[in-house]
Design a protein around this nucleic acid. Structure first.
Length: 816
RNA sequence: GCCGAAGUGGCGGAACAGGCAGACGCGCACGACUCAAAAUCGUGUUCCCUCGGGAGUGUGGGUUCGAUUCCCACCUUCGGCACCA
């Protein structure tokens, strides 16, 4: 008894981590004959300490990567850091240190924490987006996009975060009050000259998920974000003769347009406004501009607007209709102008009723009583038979949409059109800690790309932050002064940097060859490893990173840089770990769970296992510190079972067979659960098996070949979940290093098969009895055995059953 | 308002072709060991009950021999979008 080792994770975990690293156990190198598996967990934003949520994202992904490796795949599981960005800059300003210093200190800390988890990360492939050897290529990609017309610069009203002092992409503005995704401050509008990527050019293709195994949740979020609408663009004409395009999803209601509305920012507003309406229109426009600077949530939703005094002609019926302006029409969607069809659109209806505009019914749904524009109390948006619509009157609702478009096209007044809610991606950031946009402005040649051989455009280290909040790049005395790459004349650098989502759009390519200096990636590595097979991360990326990286890949494919339709084939999302109070973890609430503390107390293996066990991985849920004791007990019980000396017994054949059956049934289940990312039941299945192994030892099975097989399979199944203790016990049993290079065991179907089954006997659908029968019992014998049950006899009260339903191997239901 | 997800014991959760509801774990109770405590081990643990049963997976219906699972309507919670023409 005295030589039994004590379980001490603080000793064995660092020991094996060092050994694995020294041996390069997790190095992923090209092996042409082996199937590859490229798995990535979405890279961390380097906010400092890792919290339990990072572990929750990492450990099941790591366990699955390990499982895939044991299944015979050549697995690459790399890690890197999204190191540029506002928080680094803000934190640095606050602490009075350089963002670079702060960032790299954090990375050092995070790397150490990641290693303490016992992950199978191949650290040779680490990529850090703020390294010049990385952002050289981020800049190169920008240049490629620019050369191919996918990056452009324009003056536009853009979202500005007054706290972060920078513009934001539409995707980074959240919620009803339109606040900054990072700091929560409500954004304001600013007219600025900014760089955009043409994501809208890929709107249609981004809606195609046919190549992807992605959660439906994400596909729906992206589909809604892209927001495809089918309809028509119809050209009205102002009385001055200007063309005035509207986009409509209801061309069948064209004949019911009784007014038009322009967005207050619409370019034709000035021209169309009559002299007597100038003052009021001008006042309204000014008021709108001011209002968009105020928090939207405080604005009443009642429609406002003013008449311009101008009129336009409806091309389908020649009607002269008044043109209004109103802030419910947005310049950023469609054409910035709409036709008002109050009878069939609720917004138009409210507007018309408020301002006394005629409501004209042109659609009569057959199931409704005849509509009357004068008396109706709300719009009727349903499809139906066209009425009051000239030659198209009488067209039934199911074909009205198409007929109306055909008509408009025939008379040359418009065309079928598709509109998207998606906007182009604004990538300019007025901040220092990012990849500088590689553009030089020359008085003669305009915006000129920095030539490839002059990349990277390095960030200067000698910068200071002034209280103005302006980017130090702009204020730097010399940095921006340069010469034009074309004419050599004096020129100025772009002082904006790129959105960090640009850096993270291609990091999966940099992992392939982080030191390669001839191209963003080594094409040989690309051809072997890409695309990413399994990508895991939080749902919060659905309409940001996960759209950007798909756009980026498709754009690069069209530029001949990468291949295939998609960058990441399979996506799985983990949920969020909440604090013990069921609230989101935050420092201000004081409910943050610190993984380092837990590792010190229980060891990384226990923390890993508990994170996999305590909730459904895709759901997450509140943390419970008491619950981890159960997992700690399981780990210790595993240790004790294997290290305790046992007395060989004389087991019955049955108890040996029972153990083997349980082992192989568990193996079948654990294998399936790893495949389907159901990590909680992997751990519970292993707990169940361990309980049975304890019972088997009681029965004297320890020491038999079946016992050795059970230990062998158990440790292999445990290895991905708890890599350190599995390795230690594997070595304790004298098996060859390493358990992590062993193959995944194969289910022995004969051993796993049940010989005796419990047949459930129901009477009228209620369980009345359970009888043991041989698994291969015939249908007739099974029914007979059920009917012979005394309990069944009692319930039948002598009457013959009307039906006897048999589900082979499961149950018999007797219906009276 | 629109789109989506989720509702199962005191708690986290399981039930993966429509077929034993509550696996596994936490917590709790009792017992063993101990002078005692911790740790460990064992037993029990959905509710009601007249001990024969009865009820039960958010609510109300439906399909079925049989529904946590399928269909319809609704309620609650969470997430996303939101004057998108």
């Amino acid at each position: 008894m005295t030589d039994q080792p004590v379980y001490n994770p603080a000793e064995i975990e660092p020991k094996w981590q060092a050994r694995w690293e020294a041996d390069g156990l997790y190095h992923a190198d090209i092996k042409p004959k082996k199937p590859k598996h490229y798995a990535i967990t979405i890279l961390h934003y380097h906010y400092g300490d890792l919290h339990i949520g990072h572990w929750y994202a990492m450990t099941p992904s790591d366990a699955r990567a390990r499982f895939m490796r044991m299944r015979g795949y050549n697995v690459m599981f790399p890690m890197g850091f999204d190191a540029f960005g506002l928080p680094a800059e803000n934190a640095a300003i606050k602490r009075g240190i350089h963002p670079k210093e702060w960032t790299y200190a954090n990375i050092e800390l995070m790397r150490k924490q990641l290693k303490s988890m016992g992950t199978m990360i191949d650290w040779r492939r680490e990529a850090i987006s703020s390294d010049p050897k990385y952002y050289r290529w981020t800049q190169w990609f920008f240049t490629q996009l620019h050369k191919n017309g996918l990056a452009y610069r324009k003056m536009a009203p853009v979202d500005w975060c007054p706290n972060c002092n920078t513009t934001l992409a539409r995707e980074q503005v959240w919620g009803e009050d339109r606040h900054c995704e990072r700091c929560g401050t409500p954004v304001i509008k600013k007219d600025l000259e900014q760089w955009f990527f043409r994501t809208t050019q890929y709107a249609e293709e981004l809606l195609d998920f046919s190549h992807l195994d992605w959660p439906e949740r994400v596909r729906i979020l992206q589909t809604n974000w892209i927001g495809r609408s089918e309809g028509a663009i119809v050209t009205f004409r102002t009385e001055q003769g200007d063309a005035l395009d509207v986009f409509t999803t209801r061309p069948d209601t064209l004949w019911g347009a009784t007014f038009m509305v322009l967005a207050p920012e619409h370019p034709l507003v000035e021209k169309i406004t009559s002299s007597e309406h100038k003052d009021i229109v001008h006042a309204y426009v000014q008021q709108t501009l001011r209002q968009s600077d105020i928090q939207r949530e405080t604005v009443e939703r009642e429609k406002t607007g003013v008449f311009t005094g101008g009129y336009a002609i409806n091309p389908v019926n020649g009607e002269r209709i008044p043109v209004w302006i109103a802030d419910y029409v947005l310049m950023t969607y469609g054409t910035g102008a709409i036709m008002g069809v109050p009878a069939h659109d609720q917004r138009d209806f409210e507007f018309a009723r408020k301002f006394g505009i005629e409501v004209l019914v042109v659609i009569q749904p057959p199931e409704l009583p005849p509509l009357d524009g004068a008396t109706m109390s709300e719009a009727v948006p349903a499809y139906g038979t066209m009425v009051n619509s000239g030659v198209l009157s009488g067209t039934p609702g199911d074909i009205a949409f198409d007929r109306a478009i055909e008509y408009v096209e025939r008379i040359g007044a418009g065309r079928r059109s598709v509109n998207y809610r998606l906007r182009d991606w604004l990538i300019s950031r007025q901040r220092y800690w990012g990849a500088p946009i590689p553009i030089v402005y020359c008085a003669t040649h305009g915006a000129v790309d920095v030539p490839d051989d002059q990349l990277p455009v390095l960030l200067p280290d000698d910068v200071e932050w002034l209280p103005t909040g302006e980017s130090p790049l702009k204020l730097h005395p010399t940095w921006k002064h340069t010469t034009c790459p074309i004419c050599g004349g004096p020129a100025e650098r772009e002082t904006d940097t790129m959105d960090t989502f640009m850096c993270s759009s291609w990091y999966h390519l940099r992992y392939l060859s982080p030191d390669y200096d001839k191209y963003p990636f080594d094409p040989v590595e690309y051809d072997y490893w890409m695309p990413v097979d399994t990508y895991t991360g939080g749902i919060e990326h659905a309409t940001m990173h996960l759209i950007y990286t798909r756009f980026f890949h498709k754009a690069c494919r069209d530029m001949g840089i990468v291949k295939g339709p998609e960058p990441m084939l399979q996506l799985r999302n983990q949920g969020i770990v909440l604090g013990e109070d069921s609230e989101k973890m935050s420092k201000s609430r004081g409910n943050v769970v610190a993984p380092d503390h837990l590792v010190n107390r229980y060891g990384a293996d226990t923390v890993r296992a508990y994170l996999m066990f305590f909730a459904r991985w895709d759901m997450g849920g509140p943390w419970n510190s008491n619950g981890i004791e159960g997992t700690a007990r399981w780990v210790r019980r595993t240790w004790n079972l294997i290290t305790e000396p046992y007395n060989p017994g004389a087991p019955t054949e049955e108890s040996v067979r029972n153990l083997r059956r349980k082992v192989h049934q568990t193996l079948r289940r654990v294998t399936r659960d790893f495949e389907t990312f159901e990590f909680n039941t992997i751990v519970s299945s292993l707990m169940e098996l361990l309980n049975d192994m304890y019972k088997a030892r009681e029965m004297g099975v320890a020491g038999t070949p079946a016992w050795d097989e059970a230990l062998d399979i158990y440790l292999r199944m445990m290895a991905p979940v708890t890599p350190h203790i599995a390795e230690e016990l594997w070595a304790f049993l004298g098996k060859p290093y390493s358990v992590h290079t062993q193959s995944w065991p194969v289910v022995d179907e004969v051993a796993a098969a049940d010989e005796i089954i419990t047949l459930v006997v129901q009477v009228n659908g209620k369980v009345r009895d359970r009888i043991l029968v041989p698994a291969d019992i015939s249908d007739d014998r099974a029914k007979q055995a059920a009917l012979e049950s005394p309990i069944v006899q009692k319930h039948l009260k002598g009457a013959p059953p009307r039906h006897v339903i048999l589900v082979p191997g499961k149950l018999v239901n007797i219906v009276t």
